[in-house]
Design a protein around this nucleic acid. Sequence first.
DNA 1: CAGTGAGCGAGCTTCCGCTTGACTT
Length: 779
Amino acid sequence: MAKNLLIVESPAKAKTIEKILGEDFEVKSCYGHIRDLEKDDMGIDVNNNYHPRYMVPEDKEKVVKELKTLAKKSNEVWLASDEDREGESISWHLAEVLGLDPATTKRIVFHEITAPAIKKAVDTPRRINMDLVNAQQARRVLDRLVGFELSPVLWRKIGMQRSLSAGRVQSVAVRLIVEREREINQFTPESSYKVEALFAAKDINGKSVSFKADGPAKLNSQETAQQFLESCKGATYAVADVQVKPAKRTPAAPFTTSTLQQEASRKLGYGVAKTMLLAQKLYESGQITYMRTDSVNLSDTAMGDINNEINQSYGKQYYQSRRYKNKNESAQEAHEAIRPTYMNQHTVDDADTRRLYELIWKRTIASQMSDAEFEKTIAKISISTNKDQLTATGEVMKFDGFLKVYLEGKDEEDEEDTEGILPPLTVQQQLEFREMTATQKFTRPQPRYTEASLVKKLEELGIGRPSTYAPTISTIIKRNYVEKRDKEGVKRDVSILRLSKSGEVEKEVIQENTGAEKSKMFPTDLGMVVTDFLKQHFQKVMDYGFTARIEQEFDEIADGKLKWANMIDSFYKPFHSNIEVTLETAERAKGERELGIDAATGKKVIARMGRYGPMVQIGHADDEEKPRFAKLKSTQSIETISLDEAMELFKLPRNLGLFEGSEVTVNIGRFGPYAAHDKKFYSLNKEMDPYSVTLEEVAPMIEEKRKAKDERTIKVFEKEKIQVLRGPYGPYIKQGLRNYKLTKEQQEKAADLTIEEVKAIIEELKANPPKKVARKKKS
DNA sequence: CAGTGAGCGAGCTTCCGCTTGACTT
């Protein structure tokens, strides 16, 4: 008797479900989508109702073949892909490929992998929902049309590097980073003065302790700050009012993909790819639920386990059952929130995944814990010499609640986040004055995005899905549109006015570091030029609301109220004619910017995109004299480089003079600063600055490097361009860029090898490349 | 390995979303 075949998307789920369903079911996975659009002609018949042409990609042939065989042998096939647009489409593709009748094939869905949920699903099968499938086809076709028509426009109008790309998601992600960078570049900080007074009073043990009180509103100039401090000279201070208020804090919802990525970034410093890799490991070993989800929901079984765990570990008073609602409209909630499979497992053995696991465990537990309760004290302090009041605030925790386990991190560190404890204060109480300061504060621009805060923003805009956040970031980095790096800060002066006990106002200037960044997303010049080009010509697709708008139309298709080909048609007609107009009329985008005039020649200096990257240029191509060119340094940008910095770049190459009868020049090349001498190249040592290094320093370096190279060279066959060299593992053969290893016996007579022998060795090694030994895994 | 800086127009690149291995160091 043939069994039932049930197909899910993920192999880890298949295993669990097979255990739950027992012998009647064989559960297999299809590993996500099994078909995609052909690449030729976009895989879409644009002139025939956008009819899609699907094919099974090469890497899916094996699994499709296996499923076909199993389906034939089975009594009945059940399709159990995820319950969302993509999942419905996967079921439909499976039905098509396996030759199942969509009108009779059983389709089941569940949001959690628990026995009751699976059994209930099997008891209530439905059919494939073609409206939902059509909504997915519309999504797929639209993304293909946008991506495969926009990208070639970039190849034609920007050029630069091969593999330029544009798409509904990636181009908007780059735009966010580009616009944030410009906001920061254009930002002018405004300064104001913050008044803070230090007092002393006796605490409950009668010991004198100091505490801070804030001044009235921020003062916007040094003069007003000075005046305020002067007006407090010789004053006495008394408590005018004390208020005590209760306050509380509530825990955050369980993790989704996006919040897990954000929190792992803030608390563990992981990039989104690392977080997802570790989460995948935990998922595959059965320790957490599925890690690509937009749902904050917990299964009933999990809720019960969490209740038990909190009662046992912390006590009943720490438990508070909570249901979280998703704030995000675009969420499709095909899975649970990310949580540990077994709540009584507080940690895992594997050191790599432990920190992430513990973060997930804490967040999940905390989400069902009581509020943290505080008592907030606000004391007003009067000043005898003027009408203003100072305010001292203190916070005391009365009950820790969920804070016993976990506190969610913040993206921006607030400097004024430290509310301490106040000594007991009573109205009319006279306070001992220690000092009062007015410190200059500067407004700050929005911070640059981290990988995770970019994901957060994309999610808010409804752009991208849990499975694509990390890959999208890899793509825009790989395309060289953005880069993740650090930036050094700059020093700036901060004025502090201080009124001391003795009654004098003194001024002090200290320095602070500002604008330093660590592991942030910066746009490249290429990213800026591409973004400007796309914004100028394809405003609609680049709009932050574009995805949200078409999602509404996909929903209408899913509800059966709109035909998908009609929806695509009304998008594509104007889009495609826009493509044609742009190809015909748009100028090549160069991101050109005028920097000023070269004092020596009176010619214009411009910064722009060249064929090989960002560069500066003196003069014009039409001039009688050829223009001069120089490449920008990797830390410089077309948008921000100054004339002086540009002129500095033209100081290279420098001719240092003659050494052994030939000229020595220094320059910065593809691989960093180098010296050229007698047609050979020598990388400059780290401490050598190409702008100032002298012949006296370079000449000995050349001799040294030449000697080292001679010592490494055993034999040279000039004509064949083959060398026998001495490396750290003994003699080896080098031909062009490739190295060939010698056997022990060959190494011993390396100096006597003839050209015939060397050629034979190379032929042999090319025909039978030595097997690579896999490196041992770190344990 | 260390140049080039515009365009001959050969032949190449590209999207988003669903899933894991199969490769290499």
